[in-house]
């Protein structure tokens, strides 16, 4: 097999092993009808950079996807984070009285109270299943910086889940 054939076979194998994860990564962050175009752009970039691809290519692909989405998302530069969607059905979910549903709604409320930057850091681990090393690659930051951001985001998530004391009328003096 010549070099070109080897490169093409390797790239096909990369596509087969990463497409589903990459599509999910993008679908979490942009409307579904835009996701496939983003993913195509990522593979176009990857092919043109295939000699530079690291052995663990998935975070590299996610990083390219993140930047591609960021460049197409108005307002990203203000937030400096790429926000993660919640599904539309969850926005309108009605409690059915079960403890599981109530806990989930609490979690949703806590999630929405966080900043976009906190949500992005948490999502890279909780949704995308990345290690801190991989997530740091996606964000182009040092691992220690990511670990610090993740710890702070988790603290703020926990704080948002703490029960809030009921509001009561204050006696006027």
């Amino acid at each position: 097999m010549d070099h070109q054939g080897t490169a093409e076979e390797r790239f096909r194998a990369l596509h087969e092993s990463t497409f589903a994860d990459l599509l999910r990564f993008v679908e979490r962050r942009v409307p579904p009808d835009e996701a496939e175009d983003i993913v195509s752009t990522v593979y176009l970039t990857a092919w043109r950079r295939h000699t530079e691809l690291p052995e663990d290519a998935r975070p590299w692909l996610f990083a390219v996807a993140r930047r591609t989405m960021a460049n197409q998302t108005r307002g990203w530069l203000r937030r400096r984070a790429l926000d993660v969607r919640l599904t539309a059905t969850e926005q309108h979910e009605v409690p059915d009285g079960s403890s599981g549903t109530a806990a989930r709604l609490d979690l949703q409320r806590a999630w929405r109270s966080l900043s976009a930057a906190d949500r992005e850091v948490l999502a890279l681990v909780a949704f995308d299943g990345l290690t801190s090393d991989q997530a740091a690659t996606v964000l182009s930051i040092r691992r220690s910086t990511f670990t610090m951001r993740l710890a702070r985001a988790r603290q703020r998530l926990q704080a948002a889940l703490e029960p809030v004391p009921p509001r009561t009328l204050q006696e006027l003096s």
């Binding site: 497409f19 990564f25 679908e27 969850e90 999502a123 949704f127 988790r154």
Partner: peptide, 17 residues
């Protein structure tokens, strides 16, 4: 843990191409 609990909010967790 809290990160595992968060997975229920993942909008793409059941998505397969």
């Amino acid at each position: 843990n809290d990160l595992e609990e968060l997975a229920v909010l993942d909008p793409a967790r059941h998505n397969e191409p």
